[in-house]
């Protein structure tokens, strides 16, 4: 068994409105910053033991599918790092 850290990034699918990100963008503009767009995402870091990185990825992808993301509105990415 090896120890891995999986990083899951969950983001709204392209085209799904993100009112919180839009509000944040407007706040940045009020502070005087210039920007074209702002996208927000949730990031989860998960430490786990698995036989290999593929097994770690499979388990974490299932976590993303079943809870961390809502596949109706989110896309997600999983990155696996060997500790």
């Amino acid at each position: 068994m090896s120890t891995y850290t999986a990083t899951v990034t969950v983001q709204l699918k392209e085209g799904v409105l993100d009112p919180e990100a839009e509000t944040t963008r407007e706040a940045l503009e009020r502070l005087g910053f210039e920007l074209d767009a702002l996208r927000a995402a949730d990031r989860f870091e998960i430490d786990l033991e698995a036989t290999d990185s593929e097994a770690a990825r499979d388990r974490v992808e299932e976590m993303a599918e079943r809870l961390l993301a809502n596949p109706t509105i989110h896309d997600y990415e999983v990155a696996i790092e060997d500790q």
């Binding site: 799904v16 409105l17 839009e22």
Partner: peptide, 17 residues
């Protein structure tokens, strides 16, 4: 209900935030 897939779609943040 939507999160449990009893019903389709999702209810997410209001347009007004």
């Amino acid at each position: 209900g939507c999160e449990a897939s009893l019903t389709p779609g999702a209810f997410t943040t209001n347009e007004s935030a």
